[in-house]
Design a protein around this nucleic acid. Structure first.
Lengths: 224, 224
DNA sequence: ATTAACTTGCTTGCTGTCCAGCAAGTTGGC
DNA sequence: GCCAACTTGCTGGACAGCAAGCAAGTTAAT
């Protein structure tokens, strides 16, 4: 009937690595946007423009595909953490300036990859313990914590404080990604508006800097 | 074989209201812990100690049951918001003290009902738009925002600032509930430890108070 | 007795996985 | 260069399991 009834399979020939990457992209998107159970392998195949059975052929099972997606995601995050750390340490700035920079960097990274947040959030909620058996996951956060502490010049006794600060940074940055169209809209914030991003960064920076200064004032022994 | 092979059906006789409540409790727990798709009506029935089909009998469909669970959840939250507001306004304290109290109250409320957080977080992530058609949801957050602004004495021009503050409070409070066994463990925090709760409350209070004071200093026109 | 509160049985649709097959490519002998 | 033997990439069909919803039954309260 139609002239081009269907582009059918794409022109690209047989190429396992390429196909796997395309499947991972499709799966990442669907798992992030719809969740693990709500996504069928057939759907992944359709979005990747391969057959229904190809995802299973390459990744063995749906669970393995999911794990592969998360693994790739954490590798990206680790790379970002390392780059951010190097940049911060090379800048030689004061902790204040470094913290402000870290907030901006991290917020930008997250804004560019919202699906990472959705994937991780989903997995944290899930009772499937996929994340448990993934050494990379734990390692990434530990690395981030170490970098954070080093950049801000917090000594060994401040580990807990640094952990709370990092936790707060992550919490404050992730929340709008997940609740953009629900909570944020309800309180009159539009995460899509052009000014929102900077507004939010400034707010987060203010919060964290306040706590950092409070801590500095305390340890330098200001009289009560 | 066993003396009490099965308690079978509960002794309590027929009572629609009671049964519905039990079903709602079971569904709330399962939807929160395992998610919508991963939960079957049969499982809800089992946990509620009724037959496989009873949830469907009372709530019509799985989707309606889910909506009923969320509705009840938001009603509870609204009640908490109203009580908190009354208490805060009746206390007649300064904004600083009130904010500290609000943080503590809210953190306690959330800690007592972690499943509310999981439910809402799941629904925010979901592409099912159940929350969209729920006027109560939006109303609750708006009410919370208004209360927050009033308690802290922020005038009308500070709406955006108040929204960001409230958003931050919620983000900071919810995060440990969701990521307790993943992120928190990785950075060496144990959300189950007895001291964690107070530690976290103090940290959050510090953060928010810093921002509030900054704002006060700014508007009262301190020279640069 | 009538109605409402449940329950058991069944159907229907969907999805993950296994399997056999085929076609595109690669290798090695001549 | 050429062809045959073999490998790899990818597909469609079949099957089994499970869950939602319906329908027809069974019991308890009023």
């Amino acid at each position: 009937m139609r002239a081009t009834t269907k582009p059918r399979r794409r022109d690209r020939g047989r190429n396992a690595a390429r196909t796997q990457a395309v499947i991972l992209d499709a799966a990442e998107r669907l798992f992030a946007e719809k969740g693990f159970e709500e996504t069928s392998l057939a759907e992944v195949g359709r979005l990747a423009d391969v057959s229904r059975a190809t995802p299973g052929y390459f990744f063995g099972s749906k669970g393995s595909l999911h794990r592969a997606v998360l693994e790739r995601c954490f590798e990206d995050i680790r790379r970002a953490v390392r780059e951010g750390k190097e940049r911060a340490l090379a800048s030689g700035q004061t902790p204040d300036v470094i913290l402000a920079g870290a907030v901006a960097d991290y917020a930008d990274f997250i804004a560019a990859r919202p699906n990472f947040v959705r994937l991780i959030e989903r997995e944290a909620l899930s009772d499937r313990r996929v994340l448990d058996g993934m050494p990379l996951r734990s390692a990434v956060w530990q690395e981030a914590l170490a970098a954070f502490r080093q950049e801000l010049g917090l000594d060994i006794s401040d580990t807990t404080e640094a952990a709370h600060l990092l936790l707060s940074l992550v919490a404050l940055t992730w929340f709008p990604i997940v609740h953009g169209r629900t909570f944020l809209k309800a309180v009159g914030l539009d995460p899509g508006a052009p000014e929102f991003g900077d507004q939010r960064k400034r707010h987060i920076t203010t919060l964290l800097l306040g706590a950092l200064r409070e801590r500095a004032a305390f340890t330098s022994g200001i009289p009560s």
